[in-house]
């Protein structure tokens, strides 16, 4: 088996993967990508990258592309990460949404990417512990990811000490039980979040979630190039209800991605809003 991937092959693969997922690898990621590609060449029984790439491109089921996507996406996170936004959610965003929301319909919150579940479960806890409105409103929590493997991990709800270190002790007691060296999230919370597979570059995938009231899309768009980032923002704009909000990661700014959203400066965080009426 050839142990190398040529510059031309890498460029061809990068373009293909970008078209399929919106994720673009810079040259600095070459080692990371090559290592995983060669692993898949070997494990799928191909002799060369070229043979493997043919399978990847033309396999009708898309199974190998999914497998590779799972390997090439980064899933490092932890509970209560950037929790000032959760605070903003319960103190500013939800109270504003409740002013105009149809009371007979649930408020829908969408986390993308879900990664291994820390973010949506953190939001669930925050709502139950810190938002009195949970007694008057139904809330649907949906969490999606392009990586099918990580979705299964998220559904299991089993976490390390490191992952849960920022959770207040009383919440830890309430929602987790210790299993060996790990912590098992309780069934009530696990069943409160719906985990689904979504490719943000596929608008048909995204449209199924309309109407969304709040999106948490943190530290995902940084992996996209400018055009895919803009297309992803527009896909999210489409599924948002008028007046809905989107929260990005602390280093991300919607102003640099798309002009469609309004900036909202709340006491706890800067978030972005779909205008109530389209211009």
């Amino acid at each position: 088996m050839s142990k190398l991937i040529s510059d031309q092959e890498f460029a061809t693969f990068r373009e293909f993967f970008y078209r399929k997922t919106g994720i673009k690898f810079e040259d600095t990621k070459r080692y990371f990508v090559d290592k995983r590609l060669l692993e898949r060449v070997r494990e799928t029984g191909n002799d060369t990258f070229r043979e493997y790439f043919t399978t990847l491109r033309f396999q009708a089921s898309g199974e190998e592309l999914q497998h590779l996507t799972n390997l090439l996406t980064v899933n490092e996170t932890y509970f209560m990460r950037e929790d000032y936004q959760f605070d903003c959610l319960v103190k500013s965003i939800l109270p504003e949404i409740c002013k105009t929301h149809d009371r007979s319909k649930p408020i829908r919150i969408w986390c993308i990417p879900s990664s291994s579940g820390e973010e949506p479960y953190s939001i669930a806890m925050w709502l139950l512990e810190r938002w009195p409105g949970i007694n008057q409103w139904d809330v649907e929590l949906i969490a999606s990811d392009i990586d099918t493997g990580i979705l299964n991990t998220a559904r299991q709800g089993l976490y390390s000490e490191r992952s849960i270190r920022l959770i207040p002790p009383s919440w830890k007691t309430r929602y987790f039980s210790r299993v060996g060296l790990q912590y098992q999230l309780c069934d009530d919370l696990r069943s409160a979040v719906e985990f689904t597979h979504v490719n943000l570059s596929n608008v048909a995938d995204v449209r199924r979630y309309r109407p969304i009231d709040v999106i948490f899309c943190r530290n995902l768009l940084i992996y996209f190039d400018d055009v895919s980032r803009k297309a992803a923002a527009e896909a999210m704009f489409d599924v948002m209800a008028p007046g809905a909000f989107i929260c990005l990661g602390h280093s991300e700014s919607m102003g640099r991605i798309s002009p469609l959203f309004k900036v909202r400066k709340f006491p706890g965080a800067i978030v972005y809003q779909k205008p109530l009426e389209e211009s």
């Binding site: 139904d138 949906i142 719906e194």
Partner: peptide, 19 residues
């Protein structure tokens, strides 16, 4: 009132369109 799972029927039209 509480955390609830999504009712899929609500989304049938757009899921059909997507397909």
């Amino acid at each position: 009132m509480a955390l609830v799972k999504r009712t899929h029927d609500d989304n049938l039209p757009s899921e059909q369109q997507a397909g």
